[in-house]
């Protein structure tokens, strides 16, 4: 990898200041950024490691749900008694990201700021009526992901936490790529009263909500309600792992499986 200057600030203010350097990049757990640097696909001038900032860490139960610090690692979310009690489907999702070693390093904030189209967390962020909290504002989860590897964040903006709303019931299922462990397709279903949200990751250039599946489940909240409900393959991802048509098919299949994991 190319040389860079490494910093580990102890406060958010110091991190924000360091981020003003030209081509500075934030370092979460590094499970995507470091492989990217190793391949010389990026050349940041500065790497600003957020690991020493206590304010960015931990799970807190708040009115109506959970607030999880941006530098909380996947393994911590997966094993958190609070997350398992309040939103068990979220603990299940976090506990199945990548592999065990990746989960020991990777962070919530790093995952969503990177906005990989096949990452797991974006499905939860869109399904669970979230608010992404940054060092300067609050961004609704529905508006956070704007495209492939693109978000609503400004270049010098730092995600500090995500607030998740507790659903009545939720479930997540993914069809895993066995080599990369990313989602070929992952579907998060969440029910809030009469409202049903179905967020799909892996299938398109960015996470999206599946309107047809939401309507079917809002009318009848059972897996069987999805029988025959098709998703349009137009605009979905196609690569060596799966065609767009296959991914479209998997969306309904994974939604049904998610309904089988409701908690």
């Amino acid at each position: 990898m190319y040389a860079f200057s490494y910093q580990r600030p102890k406060t958010l203010a110091e991190a924000a200041n360091a981020l003003k350097a030209e081509d500075a990049k934030l370092l979460g757990g590094g499970q995507t950024l470091l492989p990217t640097l190793k391949q010389r696909l990026a050349r940041p001038s500065d790497l600003i490691d957020l690991s020493a900032i206590p304010d960015l860490k931990g799970v807190r139960e708040v009115a109506g749900g959970l607030e999880i610090g941006a530098f909380t690692r996947h393994a911590e979310v997966g094993q958190s008694e609070v997350v398992r009690r309040v939103i068990p489907a979220l603990a299940g999702l976090a506990g199945n990201i990548g592999d065990r070693q990746v989960r020991h390093m990777g962070t919530l904030g790093g995952s969503i700021a990177n906005a990989d189209p096949a990452a797991d967390y974006p499905a939860a962020v869109v399904a669970l009526k979230t608010v992404v909290v940054t060092d300067r504002r609050e961004i609704p989860g529905d508006d956070f992901f704007t495209g492939m590897f693109e978000t609503a964040l400004q270049p010098d903006e730092i995600v500090t936490a995500v607030r998740f709303t507790k659903p009545d019931q939720a479930g997540y299922a993914k069809f895993r790529n066995p080599a990369s462990r990313y989602a070929v397709v992952g579907v998060f279903v969440a029910k809030f009263g009469a409202e049903v949200r179905v967020a799909v990751t892996g299938a398109g250039p960015s996470v999206f909500r599946a309107d047809a599946l939401e309507a079917a489940l809002a009318a009848d909240f059972r897996a069987e309600a999805l029988d025959g409900v098709a998703v349009d393959a137009d605009g979905l991802n196609a690569d060596i792992h799966a065609s767009a048509e296959y991914r479209a098919h998997l969306v309904t299949v994974m939604a049904k499986r998610a309904m089988g994991t409701l908690e």
């Binding site: 490494y6 590094g30 499970q31 470091l34 492989p35 790497l47 070693q101 020991h104 390093m105």
Partner: peptide, 8 residues
Amino acid sequence: SVKACTAL
């Protein structure tokens, strides 16, 4: 456990 090839 972590992967030492993916940490500085």
